[in-house]
Design a protein around this nucleic acid. Structure first.
Lengths: 221, 221
DNA sequence: CAATCCCTTGCGGAATTCCGCAAGGGATTT
DNA sequence: AAATCCCTTGCGGAATTCCGCAAGGGATTG
């Protein structure tokens, strides 16, 4: 079983729960941090000292406070760590259960497991620990099908950028200029128009306002 | 100190944390439930048996699952209980730290305290328990000024309705018809226009799309 | 009563969005 | 090489939104 575990979670109460799971598995060598940056530094130092962690359990969203963070969220922390220390296993433990989020965390950040906080969260976490130890991936049952691309097909990075700009109040013309000034294609007013229309059709939105409303509900932006 | 406490919280891990606080205060007589409906029934029964609870600590948002609930959220549970059992003290314990939510929970649902889950959440919870026991109210420091109406002044029920309709993709003209058909005033296209402009100015939004984006971030809709 | 304030309503024009049609270019297929 | 497909770009007109100006009505105030 895992020998050295790090818990990254800003809610003390949740942290307690994770600890109880580890203790039930007789894993005594664990550490807790409340900020992603601390997690990164602790893992880096452990590796440097040749006593590396072999499992990280981390939340995704952390309350922002006065301390400025290089890694503001679990996603970016996971992505950075997986690039630097591929051997480190990582379990994401989050309340977020929307498929798009699960997809990015598993496919882009490359987490090994995604467990939803919930009524059965700690049981599922225990299950995930076993699976991951055996080099398998794990998803909570309620999101087990989140990786199938049946959900919202064909929404690419560009579309997300565009919707964020829309949500920030930019006009189609301003979005066009925005992309032109950054040499990102496509960038013509007409093309922007067409892509927004495509998105509206995708989500059955009557206008851009509803499109942004839906995208926010889905957690896309 | 409180003699009989109920914890209503669907995340087992968080529940653990609350329990540790109660134990530190030597409150041994407590019960835990994972659904609002169970909380309501348990409190009702305790009162009927003349062994009432004197404190409820409850989360606000509960994951929906297969079990259909009469009380889907902490807010409505609190409101119902406070009407029926005014003597029962209630502490809301939630990740939600946006002023509008705090306002409705404290002013409309009439909770005695609002504690934000966070890095210091459990310490604040302990503080809240003491305050509430002395019949005072308590707010976490980060939201201590949430009750001042300086935040988003003059956003009334009508504005909220209007923004919800906007988010649902209705045009200003359709919104006008919507209110006309329900005999709600004002309802002219021009008036709708003016109120949307007023809201945009309030929130410094460049257009209706950004307005909806901001309103969603603030939790107004 | 008159003056004032506040809100609703209306109007006109500019800006923006919405929508369909069409041309052009690159990649793939036949 | 030709045909096809897909995406980008452009254009024109209708619909909608955005914005300022102004009139009317109700409530409050002097």
């Amino acid at each position: 079983m895992f020998k050295k575990v790090l818990i990254s979670e800003d809610l003390g109460s949740v942290s307690n729960g994770i600890v109880s799971v580890l203790e039930a598995l007789h894993i005594g060598n664990f550490y807790q941090v409340q900020y992603c940056d601390d997690a990164y530094l602790k893992i880096k130092k452990a590796n440097h000292d040749e006593q590396p962690f072999d499992l990280l359990i981390t939340d995704l969203s952390f309350m922002a406070d006065h301390r400025h963070q290089k890694y503001p969220s679990g996603e970016v922390l996971i992505e950075a760590l997986k690039e630097e220390y591929p051997a480190l296993k990582i379990i994401a433990y989050s309340v977020e259960d929307r498929p798009p989020k699960v997809r990015t965390v598993m496919l882009e950040s490359k987490a090994d497991a995604y467990v939803c906080k919930g009524r059965k969260g700690l049981q599922q976490l225990e299950e995930a620990i076993f699976k991951v130890y055996n080099s398998e991936t794990y998803l909570s049952p309620q999101i087990s099908n989140a990786l199938r691309k049946t959900t919202t097909p064909e929404i690419d990075d560009f579309d997300i950028k565009m919707m964020k700009l829309l949500a920030n109040g930019l006009s189609q013309d301003e979005i066009s200029h925005h992309f032109k000034s950054r040499n990102i294609n496509p960038n013509s007013l007409s093309a922007i128009e067409k892509r927004i229309i495509k998105l509206r059709n995708n989500f059955s939105a009557k206008n851009a306002t509803q499109l942004i409303s839906i995208a926010k509900d889905l957690g896309l932006i």
